[in-house]
Amino acid sequence: MRAAWRPPVETSSPGSTRPTSPRDGNMDESKIRTELKKWIVAHSKVPVTGELPDDTPILERGILSSLDIVELVLFIESLRGDEVDTEAIEPAVFTSIDTLYSGFFAP
């Protein structure tokens, strides 16, 4: 049994972008989608101009490469406050922000 996750003690310096966990109660769906989008844009291999729609195919468009997925998984774990079992997930879950949200966060 995994121990219940507790919110980390706030020690970050000003300007740190530490995400809050959904279990803090203050991270709703739109906040999670925004955090995912910010991360994807920051790690993009191609310039992303303007709005990045939630159904953009992020791998197909070359925005992320398959090697970025390990990093993305760790970021998702930090958002969820819980580990992701990569053996149990289908690659299709990494298609877009929509599929990431429904695969990892939707209740």
Partner: peptide, 10 residues
């Protein structure tokens, strides 16, 4: 420790 890699066909 498990691996966090996901295989994508290419």
């Amino acid at each position: 420790y498990p691996e966090k890699k996901v295989a994508f066909p290419r």
